[in-house]
Design a protein around this nucleic acid. Structure first.
Length: 494
RNA sequence: CGGGGUGUAGCGCAGCCCGGUUAGCGCAUCUGCUUUGGGAGCAGAGGGUCGAAGGUUCGAAUCCUUUCACCCCGACCA
């Protein structure tokens, strides 16, 4: 009964934010680093990110995209070429001003060598539109060069005031797609297509339901004509913007002078999109499914899908168990299931059970003396924590089905949660009351930034998106009474 | 940048108010034995510039001054 420390996960009901922090650290996903606001992603956390990456990368390639890599540094002058863009990012840029250090003449440390000042400062990219569009100018001449469908996996830096592991860090990993098109329609289609890719990924792989929609002008990406978003609801009732896809119009083409000759030989500005998801998805994944015992991972993204724990009294017994387990491991692997056989002898079974629950491993098998006698194995599923003892016969097929079942079940649970926490309101008083309970609220809005800001000021809630699907019945704005085309999705957000 | 808090062993903390032998405790680590079906037990061992700098004092983790860092809550954001 000792070792309370590891078990001590703050309960979600006590302090949700603390629960999240505890979980990220104790499940060994990430930790704070020596650099303020920057995290170290630990191997187990990175393994999940790699699975996210691998699947998204596959989906990007299936939709015709290729990967490339652009520089970390951007000349300062580039950033100012698109007026709205610079305004959106200027306040959070890390700037490189020098390129050399020297011994401190007055001490033992090192100082910046003043003679090594850069002619033009470099910005550490907060996003890559500018450097990429500057490059595209040289790549695009004719309509035959289009469309250009490029993605890059990279790190970016945004100097945030306050950070939280995965949800908001000063440096984060992401992918950013940057595409160039001959027509407005094609670019808009692309932006929509990629939003759909994100939504499909969120729902099928992360088991996280999302609402697709368009951002209000106020919440739009700096430099975009339209920002499409997927919005998810976390277990504490707050919304999390999980991915965005932007229709950039010709803004960046004009800023960087990127033109092409169309079929008639006429010179036209190129149409653009950009789209991205980040390590923030890790935060979304954690907060969507996990419980007071730790992480709950969807089988599709779990680095370890099945863990096997032997329970033995001596070496001889372990050998007997291993002899039973080995063929099961081989068969599971042949089915494409990732298995870990934890026969380490420095931890007791009970410790291992708790540990793998904390880490969210979807299925756990345990085999001991009793099972050897009966030809059985204990199967425990992480999502419900239910146990059953089964014959080892056809066990692998059972596990395969069980993994699918878990994937479906946690998705269904998340959908049910969201359904239960989505309400429709018609008056502002009702809105103010409901927003305190958390969750999504569908309400009518007059479409003005003024009203949106008032709502934010009064309630801290923002318009998450104007949903694509669902009820399109017009009505009256809950604040001003002016006409509204459809209900919009509102919530307090991360 | 405002408000609050914390810096003592790898991690988590006590000691500080009221200065006084060798700075403690839990976890982790190492060794040995016993254990192993829900976070094992016993015995032993190693591990510290008490965030930093200055000051007061015979004597400072403790009091004073300065400073740095980090965390939490706000304003800003994926």
């Amino acid at each position: 009964m000792a070792n309370i420390e590891l078990k001590e996960l703050t309960k979600r009901s006590e302090d949700y934010s603390q629960w999240y922090q505890d979980l990220v650290v104790k499940a060994d996903l990430a930790e704070n680093s020596a650099v303020r606001g920057c995290m170290v992603i630990k191997p187990y956390g990175y393994a999940i990110w790699e699975k996210i990456q691998a699947q998204l990368d596959r989906m990007f390639k299936e939709t015709g995209h290729v990967n490339a890599y652009f520089p970390l540094f951007i000349p300062k002058s580039f950033l100012s070429k698109e007026a709205e863009h610079v305004e959106g990012f200027a306040k959070e840029c890390a700037v490189v001003t020098h390129h050399r250090l020297m011994k401190d003449p007055n001490g033992t440390g090192v100082v910046v060598d003043p003679s090594a000042k850069l002619e033009e400062e470099l910005i550490v990219r907060p996003t890559s539109e500018t450097i990429i569009w500057n490059t595209y100018r040289n790549w695009i001449r004719s309509y035959r060069d289009l469309p250009l469908l490029i993605n890059q996996w990279a790190n970016v830096v945004r100097w945030e005031m306050r950070t939280r592991l995965f949800l908001r860090t000063a440096e984060f990993l992401w992918q950013e797609g940057h595409t160039a098109h001959a027509t407005k329609e094609e670019a808009e289609e692309e932006a929509t297509r990629m939003l759909n890719v994100y939504a499909e990924f969120a729902e099928k792989y992360m088991a996280m339901p999302v609402v697709k929609g368009v951002k209000s002008a106020n919440e739009r990406f700096a430099g975009a004509l339209d920002t499409y978003t997927i919005e998810a609801l976390m277990q504490d009732g707050k919304a999390l913007q999980s991915g965005t896809s932007h229709f950039l119009g010709q803004n960046f083409a004009k800023a960087f002078d990127v033109m092409f000759a169309d079929k008639t030989g006429k010179m036209e500005y190129v149409w653009a999109t950009s789209w991205g998801v980040s390590t923030r998805l890790m935060g979304a994944l954690i907060m969507s499914h996990s419980d007071d015992n730790g992480l709950v991972l969807p089988p599709q993204l779990a680095p370890i899908q099945v863990v096997i724990v032997p329970i033995y009294k001596n070496e001889d017994q372990l050998a007997q168990i291993s002899a039973k387990i080995d063929p099961i491991i081989d068969e599971l692997k042949a089915l494409g299931i990732s298995v870990k056989y934890d026969n380490s002898d420095n931890k007791k079974p009970g410790w291992k059970f708790a540990e793998y629950e904390l880490k969210g491993v979807p299925v756990r098998l345990a085999m001991g003396a009793r099972d050897l006698e009966n030809g059985t194995v204990e199967v425990v599923r992480r999502d419900t924590l239910t146990k059953e003892t089964r014959s080892t016969e056809n066990i692998c097929q059972f596990i395969q089905e069980l993994l699918n079942d878990i994937q479906e079940n946690i998705y269904k649970k998340a959908v049910d949660y969201r359904t239960a926490h989505t309400v429709t309101v018609d008056t502002y008083d009702e809105f103010k009351e409901k927003i305190e309970e958390g969750g999504f609220i569908l309400a009518h809005w007059d479409g003005t930034t003024e009203t949106e800001l008032k709502i934010k000021e009064d309630t801290k809630a923002t318009i998450r998106c104007i949903p694509f699907d669902g009820d399109k019945t017009p009505g009256k704005c809950m604040v001003t009474g002016k006409p509204s085309a459809q209900r919009v999705l509102m919530a307090r957000a991360y």
